[in-house]
């Protein structure tokens, strides 16, 4: 089981490395969105209102996440699925995909943060908390969205469906995340964010456990 998961992650990374269009696409997506925001707000660095700065960052990350994770199931060809299901345990497939997406999202989140801070300034007082929050959030986003994309991939017009299904479910995570990162921006004590962090981790755990339990029912078709 673990070796299968490892194999699947390795395969995803190799494919990514070989044709590189997916990661590059998302990277370009991130960079151009950040740049569009920069130009549209027409600000010099550090002039954006902190609340706007914060919310804008998370919305960019959210859309990048939807685009990045959506391809994990939606863009796979039907034959490829058949092959997976022939060779692997369904649990290994979902764990592998989720792990790979988490990796991808953590990477994208960090790069996004770097670009965002460079272009739009850095009002964050407690960067460690902000980054820790970013890590938890990226993992949470990929947990929920991987399962959503698995569900959406079974239906027609799955791209629209991905947004329709994903956004309301993501909202609790997003609200918690925005609150924690606001705390980090204001430089509050870590203990002020513990409640939110525990809830965030709990939501992540629920999403992870449910994907693990429910995916085997989803894949037969």
């Amino acid at each position: 089981m673990l070796s299968q998961v490892y194999y699947l992650i390795k395969k995803e990374v190799t494919i990514e490395w070989r044709n590189r269009y997916a990661v590059n696409g998302i990277l370009l997506y991130l960079i151009s969105t950040i740049f569009i925001c920069y130009l549209s707000f027409n600000v010099r660095a550090n002039q954006l209102d902190p609340v706007t700065w914060n919310v804008l960052f998370w919305i960019i990350i959210l859309f990048a996440a939807v685009n990045a994770v959506a391809k994990s199931f939606i863009q796979e060809k039907q034959g490829q699925f058949l092959y997976y299901y022939w060779v692997h345990d369904p649990v290994a497939v979902i764990v592998g995909k989720t792990a790979y997406n988490s990796l991808l999202m953590v990477l994208m989140g960090l790069i996004g943060l770097l670009g965002y801070v460079l272009v739009l300034g850095n009002p964050v007082k407690d960067m460690t908390l902000f980054v820790v929050n970013l890590l938890i959030a990226s993992i949470g986003l990929s947990f929920t969205l991987t399962m959503t994309s698995a569900i959406a991939s079974k239906a027609r017009n799955s791209q629209t469906l991905m947004a329709v299904l994903g956004f309301p479910i993501i909202l609790p995570i997003l609200l918690m995340v925005i609150k924690i990162s606001k705390n980090a921006m204001d430089g509050l004590e870590w203990s002020d964010s513990y409640d939110e962090m525990v809830i965030l981790l709990a939501i992540n755990a629920i999403a992870g456990a449910l994907s693990y339990l429910l995916f085997p029912y989803l894949w037969r078709s």
Partner: peptide, 11 residues
């Protein structure tokens, strides 16, 4: 029915 049930639990 099956995918609906899966999403229902998730929701």
């Amino acid at each position: 029915a099956r995918i609906g049930a899966v999403y229902n639990i998730f929701a």
